[in-house]
Design a protein around this nucleic acid. Structure first.
Length: 391
DNA sequence: TCTGGGGTCCTAGGACCC
DNA sequence: TCTGGGGTCCTAGGACCC
């Protein structure tokens, strides 16, 4: 018996929540994302907005031009998270094997549930009905023998759809899929397809694995070989989804030149990341900065430390060091980011330097209070900087 | 109309060790 | 005097996804 995998995907999730919460927006072009007139992009838009050519990740000002009558709304992540939790609680009624891949998307292993819910078509319909009843929202469901096929099937069925790809029907399903819709083959790979005059999934299947790997690289070649046959290429099999890195970055409303202002941003970022590490019970070995110049050139620098970083001051010092070394002097900066990786369990403070350990203990005490109160406590030094670069 | 933010994984080259 | 391979770790950049 082949496995039965569902991919469940909310339709235009953020925009649909807004339309459901404010019925006067129903049937109208709703665009959730940055404020028009500012730097930023569309996060999600309703199908009514898509009719105007508006798309996710499009600059918000372009969306405003395409759809001046659009209803532009800010992202209310907490609200979407609440609704998402409701949806996932419904999913849990269908199988204990729910793998949440994002706020609005999940894989369900429905193998062996036929006795309870009937064939995949019936189970899919029941699931959609229950989600609509409990949240008022529509989802699209794809079902197949593996995650890759299920994912493509749900995408094909949008909005409010249900497609079941029968076991053995993978290749014919893939043949009906435009090459441009192949999940995992983005802009650059599509460009490569055009250069090689590969126009369909079927044509792709004419290439043997070794050739694909020479043309597209080891990993991508292997992926494509499996993908055009509708075979699972190991999508998210990883059991424990432990975080490998965390990061924060900011695009400024206006490009910034002043070094002190930029370093103040690094301090805030360091404090944010340290707090997140603390709440995760993790520590980090590697620090990386990312900067994007006004001309959009993007560079990064990183350094792995000899021992785990134990306080935000320490993280800040490493960040500033990397930043000063990497930055081309005088160049205006559009984006500044900080990330930590090489994450491991525990918030050990075995630092040989007494001061470091003391810093860390103090900070952990502060974080503990902050976590409990939810307040936004800031160090005096940070308040003094008084910068609001992106109001 | 200039192009967000948070992630993951891959690649290529260099350092270093055996 | 010329110069082996393999393995691992690290860095910088890139592709891709939601």
């Amino acid at each position: 018996m082949p496995p039965v995998i569902f991919h469940v995907d909310m339709d235009a999730f953020f925009a649909s929540v807004e339309q459901h919460d404010s019925p006067e927006y129903a049937g109208k072009p709703v665009i959730v994302g940055a404020r028009p007139g500012h730097r930023g992009v569309v996060s999600t838009c309703s199908y009514e907005a898509r009719a105007f050519g508006v798309r996710s990740a499009m600059p918000i000002n372009e969306a405003a031009r395409l759809c001046p009558q659009g209803i532009f709304l800010p992202v209310r992540m907490e609200r979407y998270q609440d609704i998402s939790n409701e949806v996932f609680s419904v999913l849990g009624d269908f199988t204990p094997q729910v793998d949440r891949v994002s706020i609005d998307e999940a894989f369900l292993d429905m193998s062996g549930t036929e006795r309870l819910f009937g064939p995949p078509e019936d189970a899919g319909r029941a699931l959609k009905k229950k989600i609509r009843e409990s949240t008022g929202l529509t989802v699209s469901v794809g079902a197949g023998a593996n995650r890759f096929i299920a994912k493509l099937a749900s995408a094909r069925s949008k909005p409010d759809g249900l497609i079941v790809v029968p076991s053995g029907g993978e290749e014919s399903f893939m043949d009906a899929l435009p090459l441009g819709k192949l999940w995992g083959a983005g802009e650059k790979t599509q460009e490569r397809f055009r250069e090689l005059n590969i126009r369909s999934v079927k044509e792709l299947r004419g290439y043997d694995e070794g050739l694909l790997q020479r043309l597209f690289g080891q990993a991508m070649g292997g992926f494509l070989y499996m993908a055009c046959r509708g075979l699972d290429c190991g999508m998210g099999r990883d059991e424990a989804p432990t975080s490998r890195s965390i990061s924060t970055e900011r695009t400024f409303e206006y490009d910034v030149i002043d070094q002190d202002s930029l370093e103040a941003v690094l301090l805030e970022s360091a404090q944010e990341l340290m707090f997140r590490l603390f709440t995760m019970g993790m520590q980090a070995m590697t620090v990386a900065i990312k900067l994007r110049y006004a001309d959009f050139r993007t560079v990064s620098a990183r350094k792995t430390q000899e021992r785990a970083i134990s306080s935000s001051d320490e993280l800040y010092r490493h960040a500033v060091e990397l930043f000063r070394k990497k930055r081309e002097s005088g160049q205006a900066i559009r984006l500044l980011g900080l990330s930590v990786s090489g994450l491991e369990e525990g918030m050990e403070t075995q630092g040989e330097l007494f001061d470091t350990a003391k810093d860390s203990r103090l900070e952990r005490a502060i974080f503990g209070l902050k976590k409990k109160s939810g307040s936004t406590m800031k160090k005096a030094r940070n308040l003094r900087s008084g910068l609001d670069l992106n109001p």
